[in-house]
Structure formats: structure tokens, C-alpha cells
């Protein structure tokens, strides 16, 4: 029998607080993710290469991404070291984290978990693009925040798969945002559970803010521009074919989104942003992300 929303919420939060209930990072990914979180300036190429190369499947996935035009590579690379040299450590960090996220997605679920990764990757790319377009100083940070913004969905897939599936089916049938359906069915949205896990895994304040605040930007007090970039990119992806496996039936005026007002406080360039071009460029991401997912997501 399914639990009521408040029972589900209590159970979820209990599991989140419990020492042994929250899954640990997989053994190969933990040192890599931890290493990738430090500033790029203090990273060593050899160590990144060693950490990625410990896992054959992860290596293959990273090379697929490194060879995608989405990451700026138009000539083939066939070794991790070659990829780091050609693309740089910053870009390699994006790629490795993207692959880690894919590998953290549970496979046992009845839902196709790949759609959530597609959305994450699309949002990461759009966030990087939008960050550059408005003059945000750290587009790579925007990429990572976009990639991890829906981390709470992973949480739900692990800890409440049946209830989460019900929420997803409800969202798909009514063509509404997943966050709204989660709040109805689970009693809590992925932004809240994602924030709790991100804090627990010590993701750092900017990422925690983006994960916890992207559905309610107006209430965010720190790292507001970063959160706004992720929130706008999230909406663009949800309207543009990189949603969570269904389309939201609504009309959006980006200028009237709360995140637009927040971002314009620090980055007035947003007022003259070419949204049309950004939207059309997202079409390229959609095609490329679908292709990538086909080759990257094969089970190990």
C-alpha cells in the first residue's frame, strides 16, 4: 500500500537523516568526485587521469563525452590523458562529473533513469551557455550546478522509487512540473531532498544553493545569480525537449520568470540576451545529448 504524502515525507527524511540509509558514493566515484571538487588550479593532470582510468566503463564514457562537439572537441581523442591535454582540466572536470552522475543513477527503477541524466546534461550545457552570455565569471561552476541541480531526483529514485514513480506519472499525465507532483505525492520536492543530500556530501555552498533553490529563486539569499542561471536553464530545457521524459504544457515568458529579475540585478546584460538564439542552440544540445546517451549509458 502506498503511503500518504506526509508519511512518505517523514519516511524519506528519516532515511536521509539515518546513517546507513543514504547510499554512499560508489567506491570508484567517491575519490574522483571528491578530487574534482577542489579548485582546478590545485589539481594534477596525472591524478585526474589515474582516478578516471581506474574504471574501464567510466573511461569509455568520459571519452565519448570528450569526443562530443558539446564539449568543443571536433578532432577525435582516444586516451583520457589526450582528452585532458586537448580539452583542459576544467572541461575534463565537467565531463568526469557528468559521467559520475550517470553512474549514480539507479538502474533497477521501472522508470528510464536516462531521461533524468539527459535533463541534467542539457541543463548543464544551457547553464554554461547562459553564464557566458550574461558575463557570469565562472561558467564551469554554472555547468556543474546545472548538472547537479536535480540531485534530489536521484535521492527519490533510491529511497522512494514507488512513490516517485507515481509522482512522475502524475506529472506526465497532467503535463505539470515534476517538483509540483512530488510535493503532492511525496510531500516534499526534489529541491529539498537534493539540498539535504548535497549538504551531507559536502558539495559546497554554491552547489547546495542551486540544488535547493532552483524552484524558488526569489527566496534564495546566497549565490543568487548562479541559482538564477540554473533556474532559467532548467525552464528552457523543460520547455525545449529535454524535460524528464514528457513535456510541460504551458506558456513561459522568460522575462517574467522570478529568476530573470534576480539575474538582472547583477547582470543587466540579460535584458539584451538573444533568447531565440539560445533556444535554437538548445536544439543542437537535444540532438547531441540524445545521441550521447545512446552510446554512453549502456550498462557496464
Amino acid at each position: 500500500m502506498l503511503l500518504t504524502p506526509s508519511q512518505t515525507k517523514e519516511s524519506l527524511l528519516r532515511k536521509l537523516r539515518g546513517v546507513n540509509q543514504v547510499p554512499d558514493l560508489p567506491i570508484v566515484l567517491a575519490p574522483l568526485l571528491n578530487y574534482l571538487q577542489q579548485p582546478v588550479d590545485s589539481m594534477q593532470v596525472a591524478e585526474v587521469v589515474r582516478l578516471i582510468s581506474r574504471d574501464k566503463a567510466l573511461t569509455a564514457q568520459c571519452l565519448h563525452l570528450a569526443n562530443s562537439p558539446l564539449f568543443g572537441r571536433w578532432q577525435p581523442v582516444d586516451t583520457v590523458h589526450g582528452a585532458v591535454v586537448a580539452l583542459g582540466l576544467r572541461r575534463m572536470r565537467e565531463i568526469a562529473t557528468s559521467c559520475c552522475l550517470l553512474n549514480l543513477t539507479p538502474r533497477a527503477s521501472k522508470l528510464d533513469p536516462v531521461v533524468f541524466w539527459e535533463h541534467a546534461l542539457g541543463c548543464a550545457l544551457a547553464s554554461r551557455h547562459l553564464a557566458r552570455a550574461v558575463g557570469f565569471a565562472d561558467p564551469e561552476k554554472a555547468y556543474l550546478a546545472g548538472l547537479l541541480h536535480d540531485f534530489g531526483i536521484l535521492m527519490h529514485l533510491w529511497l522512494a522509487p514507488r512513490e516517485f514513480q507515481e509522482a512522475w506519472e502524475k506529472a506526465r499525465a497532467a503535463h505539470i512540473p515534476l517538483q509540483d507532483a512530488e510535493e503532492e505525492v511525496l510531500g516534499v520536492g526534489h529541491s529539498e531532498t537534493g539540498r539535504m543530500l548535497a549538504e551531507r556530501w559536502r558539495f559546497g555552498d554554491p552547489l547546495v544553493a542551486a540544488i535547493g533553490g532552483h524552484h524558488d529563486v526569489a527566496k534564495v539569499t546566497a549565490h543568487r545569480s548562479l541559482v538564477a542561471i540554473v533556474a532559467l536553464s532548467d525552464v528552457l530545457c523543460r520547455m525545449g525537449g529535454l524535460n524528464h521524459g514528457y513535456s510541460e504544457e504551458r506558456q513561459v515568458d522568460m522575462v517574467e520568470e522570478p529568476a530573470f529579475a534576480v539575474l538582472s540585478e547583477e547582470f543587466p546584460a540579460i535584458h539584451t540576451l538573444d533568447w531565440e538564439r539560445l533556444t535554437f542552440e538548445l536544439d543542437t544540445f537535444v540532438v547531441e545529448v540524445h545521441q550521447l546517451v545512446n552510446v554512453v549509458s549502456c550498462p557496464k
Binding site: A46, S53, N67, W74, H81
Partner: peptide, 30 residues
């Protein structure tokens, strides 16, 4: 296998690279 020399399938063989001029033509048309 030593780090950095491991090769893996780098995806389907990539098509011939696009001439950067094509991107400029695209932008000029836009």
C-alpha cells in the same frame, strides 16, 4: 593498465570536422 594510456572506444567514428568558416556563414545569415 597504466593510467592515461588506456584507450577505449571513443564513440562511433567521428565524421569529418566542419570547417569553422561554416559557423561564420551561419552567424552571418542569422
Amino acid at each position: 593498465m597504466s593510467a592515461g594510456v588506456m584507450t577505449a572506444a571513443a564513440g562511433p567514428e567521428r565524421a569529418r570536422a566542419l570547417d569553422p568558416q561554416l559557423f561564420r556563414i551561419r552567424d552571418s545569415i542569422y
